[in-house]
Write a protein that binds this DNA or RNA. Structure first.
Length: 521
RNA sequence: GUCCCCAUCGUCCAGAGGCCUAGGAUAUAGCCCUUUCAAGGCUAAGACACGGGUUCGAAUCCCGUUGGGGACGCCA
């Protein structure tokens, strides 16, 4: 039998970190088994604007390379893959359950059920519906309707015995049937609910392995009940531990962003991301752009491979030392039985570490291609960039070395793409390095030296500067910092000689002049 | 409240009775390199939640306690 797994996103407009991790595991398992991975859209209650809300999610999948064999936009033999379009299937299933007695029509009002629920609370017992307004026959149903009641369909859950099944992650699992509720499967308005839909779809789509987050573990008995009552063969289940918030064991949630911001490193990563977004004029809201959402990493310039690698190791491991996995290796090595049972907290800092390593193995040309769109969008080069600009970008990227950790970091080095009079000065650095006794004449003399350096490259510049230092009888630090601030406006940056060479003689001299002028003001 | 689950460095993992004086990664600190910042190299500090068993022997098995978490919808 061909392995078939699925991921079922709700069209919410963004892809959650925990969600992709679940999707990744589904995808890896399917690919590793030579099976298929499908996407099914859980839009049972949304209806409106699904297409728009789905786009960011599909985009996230594409970016990560999580390709789906069947689902939205690619179709497939089990189409449609939108739950909103499968109502007839669900309704038919409800009729079947009604016919076999696995479900019943119920005419309780919401208030009546609520009253029972509260009573159970008071008695410290688990709420089980009394079935008081159950309609066994059409006559009864008609009578209830005559009272103005409107019916739902509930599952007639077993009231004794246990529901036992094997979970591929958690081992043998048991739930007492008597503690299960008579869940509603069809609303008063005739629409069906998720659990029914899910069981039907998993069967219709021939899903063999249901791999999902552990919050669904307690929903499994009712789905098993539905599936069995409908005569379906059961899929295998694997419940993944949830992804926890940074530094905590609470489930990661997009709603608790302000809480995560108390984590210094989380906030730092967020702030840096926002800074990049602002410079490329990306409209962001915390809902769609935060380290909890996959889009954040794409927009800021992470490598998809880094995110994938990090997520893979969040709850799974091969052994005690392997931590770099290519996509192929992941697929080959992944196994459900090495998934952890306990929750794992999401650590964007460690993700950054994986990102840095990925960046380091990319060539200058590759890194340049990642970085270029940021310069284009922030208007530091033409859009699209000219050939000369591309070469320029490669030179800058080369000089940057591993300082560019995420592609958007290029925007921290824009002094190489700006006109001389446009570069802003870091006020503190300017005061510290330039407004100092003896710096001005030194800088003037160095500026003259610069005119004589030929060729104007890093090696020659270094020789010239060292000779200058010797002649002046100063320490190298006394001139280097001053020149760096004068030429780049900043206290930190590339190696000075690479930087100067990159800018060229004219720009260097012009910028030193500008700095001197400013010093005189 | 009821049911269920989880428990090794701050964090992510390794560990399926002796290989554990508990290993790796990340983060942190110090040192080296050095024109700054990165990167890199070296070093340090850092954990088996607790209590009982079982066993010659327990991080590993069992029970309990504590702590943390999840599920309890005419949401998905």
């Amino acid at each position: 039998m061909t392995v078939r797994t699925r991921f079922a996103p709700s069209p919410t407009g963004y892809l959650h970190i925990g969600g992709v991790r679940t999707a990744l595991f589904n995808w890896l398992f399917a690919r590793g088994q030579g099976g298929q991975f499908l996407l099914r859209v859980d839009d049972t209650d949304a209806g409106r604007n699904v297409t728009a809300a789905l786009q960011p999610i599909l985009q996230g999948f594409r970016w990560l390379g999580l390709d789906w064999d069947e689902g939205p936009e690619v179709g497939g033999p089990c189409a449609p893959y939108f739950q909103s379009q499968r109502a007839d299937r669900y309704l038919a299933a409800v009729e079947q359950l009604l016919a076999t007695g696995a479900a019943y029509r119920d005419f309780a009002t919401v208030e009546e059920v609520q009253a029972e629920r509260e009573e159970a609370q008071r008695e410290k017992k688990r709420f089980i519906y009394s079935r008081r307004w159950l309609a066994e026959t059409d006559e009864q149903a008609a009578a209830f309707e005559a009272e103005g009641r409107r019916g739902v369909v509930r599952l007639r859950m077993p009231r004794n015995g246990v529901c036992a099944f094997q979970d591929l992650v958690r081992g043998d699992v048991e739930f007492e049937w008597s503690l299960e509720q008579d869940h509603v499967i069809r609303r008063t308005d005739g629409t069906c609910l998720y659990h029914l839909a899910s069981a039907v779809d998993d069967h219709d789509f021939a899903i063999t392995h249901v791999i999902r987050a552990v919050e669904h573990l307690s929903n499994t008995p009712r789905q098993i009940f539905i599936a069995k009552s409908l005569g379906y063969e059961l899929p295998a289940y694997a419940h993944l531990p949830y992804v926890a918030a940074p530094g905590s064991s609470e489930k990661l949630s997009k709603r608790k962003l302000s809480k995560y911001m108390q984590n210094k490193q989380f906030k730092k990563i967020f702030d840096e991301g926002v800074a990049i977004a602002e410079r490329i004029r990306l409209l962001v809201t915390p809902e769609t752009f935060s380290p909890v959402v996959v889009d954040f990493y794409r927009e800021v310039g992470y490598e998809p491979a880094a995110l994938m690698n990090y997520l893979l190791l969040l709850g799974w491991s091969l052994d005690d030392h392997t931590e770099t996995f290519s996509k192929e290796e992941m697929i080959r090595q992944f196994s459900l039985d090495r998934i952890n049972r306990s929750e794992a907290s999401f650590d964007p800092q460690k993700l950054l570490a994986f990102q840095e390593r990925r960046m380091q193995v990319l060539s200058v040309v590759e890194r340049s291609s990642r970085v270029l769109p940021y310069l284009e969008r922030a208007d530091f080069v033409d859009n699209p960039a000219t050939e000369a600009q591309r070469i320029r970008v490669q030179q800058v990227v080369s000089a940057a070395g591993d300082r560019i950790k995420v592609a958007g970091d290029i925007l921290s080095y824009t002094e190489f793409f700006q006109a001389d009079e446009e570069i802003p000065y870091d006020e503190k650095a300017f005061n510290k390095r330039l407004r100092k006794e003896g710096v001005e004449p030194l800088l003037r003399r160095f500026r003259e030296q610069l005119g004589l350096v030929t060729p104007f490259d890093a090696v020659t510049l270094e020789g010239a500067l060292r000779a200058f230092v010797e002649a002046e009888g100063i320490k190298i630090g006394q001139i280097v910092h001053a020149v760096r601030v004068a030429v780049t406006g900043k206290a930190v940056g590339f190696g000075l000689f690479e930087g100067l060479a990159l800018l060229g003689r004219e720009a260097c001299v012009a910028r030193i002049d500008l700095a001197l002028k400013r010093l005189a003001e």
